[in-house]
């Protein structure tokens, strides 16, 4: 066997294995999506049905029974607002860490990360009591604040590792030309750090959209997001798979599709400077 032939057959084997793994990993999502278009009887058929006449009945029923759009709007609002608020607080901090580091910079960064390691459940009772006393229980405002704080350490860290790679000389040059802090920010940091800012924002959007702990514990009908809508379909209706699938597809489709399109952008900052 010549070298070329050998490497060709190796590629065939390698790509088949890769495809197999990818399909296995994706299979649950595929199955969920297909089930959403079945009738309840088809959904629990053994062996699983793969060819059938698709129905939209489940989707209309989910919207009628539990007002999907209300929860979806809550999800959009809380994840977008918390991401924007987080960026607003984190960008200046990361800028300061990256370009005027002091002896304490590393320690402060580590401390910020350590707050993220404290389990949320440790803060659950106090936050619950505080929200109750201030009348913020089951409000979107409370969720926005909590999502922001929850993601802030990761945001600062990601932005810091992105900004650090911007050459200092560019800022010095800008300063020579008489640029003030705002000009530095607007004309140097923003364009050069855009990649890092975008990927930080994208990750936090995903994390906020998928957040379940605080949503399950602090909200009910008013401020509930899609995570809680899905959970409400869990227990007694356990065997109504078609409806459960429909509500799940409705809950994950926006963010999964969003993730597909932004994955290249997302990855850049996710490596936290681990990749040069």
């Amino acid at each position: 066997m010549s070298f070329a032939q050998k490497s060709k057959s190796a590629t065939v084997i390698r790509s088949s294995v890769a495809w197999l793994i990818a399909l296995v990993m994706f299979f649950p999502i595929l199955f969920l999506t297909v089930t959403a278009f079945k009738t309840e009887l088809q959904a629990i058929a053994v062996p699983s049905v793969w060819f059938f006449e698709p129905t939209l009945e489940n989707f209309t029923e989910v919207q009628e029974r539990s007002d999907y759009l209300h929860y979806a709007w809550n999800s959009v609002l809380t994840s977008v607002m918390s991401t924007l608020l987080g960026l607003l607080i984190a960008i200046p901090a990361a800028f300061s860490f990256a370009f005027t580091p002091t002896r304490r910079t590393k320690d402060i960064l580590m401390w910020m990360l350590s707050t993220k390691m404290m389990p949320a459940v440790g803060a659950l009772v106090p936050i619950y009591v505080l929200s109750q006393k201030t009348g913020l229980l089951d409000t979107r405002f409370a969720l926005i604040i909590i999502f922001t704080m929850m993601n802030l350490p990761i945001m600062v860290w990601m932005l810091y590792s992105a900004f650090k790679d911007i050459p200092h000389e560019i800022f010095e040059a800008a300063r020579m030309d008489g640029a003030g802090l705002w000009e530095e920010f607007r004309h140097v940091l923003l364009p050069l750090g855009m990649g890092g800012i975008a990927s930080t924002g994208l990750l936090c959007l995903v994390l906020a959209w998928n957040e379940a702990f605080w949503v399950l514990n602090l909200t009910s009908s008013q401020a509930g997001t899609l995570a809680s809508l899905v959970a409400s379909y869990s227990s007694p209706e356990g065997l109504f798979w078609a409806k459960l699938s429909a509500v799940s597809v409705l809950a994950i489709a926006p963010i999964v599709v969003f993730g597909w399109f932004s994955q290249k952008q997302l990855v850049q900052g996710l490596t936290f400077g681990a990749v040069k």
Binding site: I21, A22, L23, A227, S234, G259
Partner: peptide, 15 residues
């Protein structure tokens, strides 16, 4: 393959 492989990361824990 990459797109299929990373999809589960975007699925919310409750789902």
């Amino acid at each position: 393959v990459r797109v299929l492989l990373i999809s589960p990361f975007f699925v919310m824990p409750t789902v």
